[in-house]
Design a protein around this nucleic acid. Sequence first.
DNA 1: CCGTGAATCCTTTTT
DNA 2: GGATTCACGG
Length: 724
Amino acid sequence: MKILTKLNAQQRNAVEYNAGPHIVVAGAGSGKTRVLTYKIAYLIQEGLEPESILALTFTNKAAREMKERIRELIGKKADSLWMGTFHSIFARILRIEATAINYNSNFSIYDREDSVSLVSNILQYLSINLENVTANSIQHKISNFKNHMITPEEYSNNIASTIAEKKIGEVYIEYNKRLRENNSMDFDDLLLKPIELFNNNVRILQKYKKMFKYILVDEYQDTNNAQYEIVKILSPVKDKLCVVGDDAQSIYGWRGANIRNMLDFEKDFSKAKIFRLEQNYRSTKNILLAADSIIKKNTEQIAKTLWTENPEGEEITLVKCSDEKDEAFQIAKKIKKEISTKKLSLNDIAILYRTNAQSRALEDAFRREKIPYKIVGGVEFYRRKEVKDVLAYLRVLSNQDDEESLLRIMNFPQRGIGNTSITKMIAFSRKLNLSLFKTMARVFEVIEVKERIQKNVKQFRILLDKYIDLQSKLSIGELTSALVDELGILRMYKEENSQDSASRYDNIHELLASIQEFNKEFPEATLEQYLAEVSLVAGIDQYDESKNSITLMTVHSAKGLEFPVVFITGCEEDIFPLNPRFDSDSKIEEERRLFYVAITRAMKKVFISFARSRYRFGEVAYQNKSRFIDELNPNSVEEVIDGSNRKSGRRRKGDFDEYYQESYDDYDQEKRSFRVGSRVSHDIFGNGKVLAITGNGDTQRITISFEDTGTKQLLVKFANLKLL
DNA sequence: CCGTGAATCCTTTTT
DNA sequence: GGATTCACGG
Ligand SMILES: Nc1ncnc2c1ncn2[C@@H]1O[C@H](COP(=O)(O)OP(=O)(O)OP(=O)(O)O)[C@@H](O)[C@H]1O
């Protein structure tokens, strides 16, 4: 079998196994994805129909690439595989079966922003105004409930205890009700509704169980309870199920991912077989040594062996910086040096960070130093305001019940329908139990709305009707161009003539081009299909490898990727690991896994940078080097050459605190008494060590790690601290 | 009633 | 630093 020759013995065993449920548990770079890819090719070659294979990946990009690899191995048959993310595959199935769960097949998919705006409208509608509770935080909570499969009723009746929680329960109930009324689903529904669908419709379940003769799941360590449930319900008659994952790379716990799915696989699927892969093909010995020294510090994990035939390789270089600008500049310098001395291409280099906000300083430096870069994630194209505005039009044309989208465009571009009028129309529509869209046609009955504005509404409704009608006559590309043209959106941005509006102008052009392109690829595609596609694109899906440039992204986005050279930036307490102050063990362990993921993206060389101070939330914060740096095996790390003029010149890593301390006074003459590293005492919390000081004057805050009570942030003004 | 500039809040990671 | 809310002038 030709396919199997590209695999080592352990990989081959996993690929050939066919007797029941099995799981491949293995460390980074050991070829888990490769096993899955080859297994699918192998199955097809052995005569299984590609239509009967369901393969679930974490990102659309991963699916696309896997499909491409399979096509290289076995040809066009790969095209009829069911391959995609959980979200996109089940959105597809939900559209087919929508009526069974009382939805229409043209339902809209709400992203986080849409959901927040819906929550915000509900808060107003129910006149709920809670201290310290924002629409944002409630949306967050609701998503969390859904990820843990807690229904609104369950939450309200059994979990909510405080008054605030009861109120949140009310919002949750109303939120789900509105989604249904809007013929819309949020991201989480795309995983919950299939469960509802299959549990309540045996015939539909049987249909899909019969259809999917083999199910394969990549990145199984990051599946949540709902995804587990889906796999469990659908798992084929003879348990032809293969999942692969690495518990040490589980980094989406905050989103409901449950490592237990992985740890309990043997219990959950009877006669499950475990396969292990132990040879790493990606990284140097040094990088594996460093990665291992990190992950060893976690208590909860499946023990794994990982070895490589690759050379020892270079040690990790620590880059000590004074602030985020210095960091960016030093990295730019290192990049140029790497490229010139090792004849690397820009594409070989990735810059990773913990939070998107960190990209700013890096971008500035790369622009100045003329290093071409591409950036993954951040504010994604399809989430930009101007793009979402146009998409909202398309969503209304496709689904008139989508009230959130309708509200978004009601007065965009400005047509003199203000908030007051909209509120009146909404009140009218609630009273008569009509959709807002239907109310628009009867706006003359809404007597509270001024006559002049009634006319505006009516005219707007006529415009929408016209395009709803045109849908069947024009291609989606033509339709959108005509609409954008009639709305005068491009003209509007052109006339505004600011830098901001110029980029909006470009983005609308780009959107139109992307629609045309989609149209060319799928000439028969409907508006719904286009919208479904764009609602589910992630930042990483738009990653364009053909452009010759370095890549900037979060560590989360880098999952599953590999680069010859990796820079891990901002390795400071409070950034990476982020927010250790509210910490539980499980959270710090997830941060540590994230750091492990970061290191293991590298094939040949890792740089780790950290800064003494950093501009954050509008003020300068003094930073401490990340605990993860100290956890690295010293043998895997190069001695630090200190840039400053010191007598000793050469210094070992680990003396950063001292270095820090000396220069600290330069920054803050007044507040000498407390400095990072100082030991202090507090009347209630006891003794502790200062981790960070931010801000000035009355708002100056101090972060202290107390011996007994953990890390706390206090206002210096009130803390009444004594220096020890 | 609408649009604009100032004030205020919040501030992870993402399918 | 960015988004959203608030107050005021048109
Ligand atoms: N048998 C093999 N022979 C040669 N190269 C291999 C082999 N197996 C895997 N590789 C290579 O090793 C690298 C890592 O493989 P892959 O991405 O499948 O690992 P993974 O276990 O999924 O990694 P991660 O856990 O980081 O996602 C890839 O470049 C792949 O081509």
